[in-house]
Nucleic acid binder design. Structure first.
Lengths: 196, 196
DNA sequence: TTGTTACGGTAACAGTCGTTACGGAAACGG
DNA sequence: CCGTTTCCGTAACGACTGTTACCGTAACAA
């Protein structure tokens, strides 16, 4: 049991190393050797944990999805009501602090890498559909009398907005401080009649 | 004069080749040889036109900016009023057809490449600031009585939304058809009291 | 035509890439 | 205690990278 636990922990550590390299050095320098250096091991360990580089990236991508999914679920459960949950869930997807900013960079890097990788692009699509469904459900709870198309339109607008804002803030933190991001989200929620 | 015109034309052709490779093969395969192959020449020509690979990417990035800037300006001038101009300008930034979708892919690729390239990231920031200023000006014309902070907030929301939507639609065209993108923009404009 | 210059294709360079093979060390069962 | 197996670091492979040097060729001046 300790064996598989170690293997899983190593896989997580290597995934974290992938995120680190992706955020700090970009997609072009996301090499097996760079990941191994960031993880404090050699390429031998990396290639023994994963059959090849693409499998390593795919695992890191899936683990990132799972991590954020758990975080979002926790935020949703901790919120006092559906509108507070919606706001909290949207805010966590933006670049409000350095950690979230790096996560946005990683997110963007995976999306750019997915252009040529069928498995990564399929992972993105599945992930994105789940994300859209979650926000749609939150909006449906926040405005139970809305028709489905209004819910869908608002959900699409809100997730697009947070995605674009996260990219902007990740690329230019000084131009998009946390206060601007938060006021934008609140203004959008107010415009869509979803303020708490 | 024909010399410099040829040189400029070749630089534009190589930039188009950069876009093509970036959209079809992604950032990882954006090599000098791939660009030369897409342009139908050898690496010798590429390296005679540009001192190195980064200069080639930077020129392609700047030319893409200039091209879209001219297109946006033309749309703005052709619009009958400020609200129609705002809508047209926002719509061109999304992935409504295959051409715009590829452009969104290229846009995303450059942004991902800018993570490690100081010149590219500065180019993005300058470009993005100009884009935000333009949309803010359009909103100011469309709603002259709004206070500045409301204009800024709406502008930020709208450009973030279109940016995110373009990325989503570029990565998953079937999930985000043009009709969904357009209805989302119209819903957002209506929500922000900017409908025409 | 002849000499000169600019252009661009060819080939090679050193370096890095993903991946593989091998060998030593550590952990395990007996 | 030893034999076996698992683990992982080391070193190497061929392929590919950006970049450079070289050289033939076409265009121009005289």
């Amino acid at each position: 049991m300790s064996r598989s636990a170690d293997r899983s922990a190593q896989a997580s550590m290597l995934s974290a190393a992938v995120w680190s390299v992706l955020a700090e050095q970009g997609l072009e320098r996301l090499t097996v050797r760079a990941v191994a250096a960031a993880a404090g091991c050699t390429t031998g360990l990396v290639m023994h944990r994963f059959p090849n580089r693409r499998a390593l990236l795919l695992h890191a991508r899936r683990l990132l999805h799972e991590t954020t999914r758990e975080r979002v679920s926790a935020l949703e459960e901790a919120a006092p009501g559906p509108r507070e949950a919606l706001r909290a869930v949207l805010l966590q997807g933006m670049a409000l602090d350095e950690r979230n900013r790096q996560e946005a960079l990683v997110w963007m890097g995976f999306l750019a890498a997915a252009v040529t990788d069928p498995e990564l692009i399929e992972e993105h699509r599945r992930n994105n559909a789940a994300w859209r469904a979650r926000v749609s459900r939150l909006i449906g709870d926040a405005a139970p009398d809305w028709p489905a198309d209004r819910v869908a339109s608002a959900a699409l607008a809100l997730i697009s907005m947070t995605e674009g804002m996260a990219a902007y803030a990740a690329a230019d933190p000084e131009a998009y401080p946390p206060s601007a991001q938060m006021s934008m989200v609140d203004a959008a929620l107010a415009a869509f009649s979803l303020s708490h």
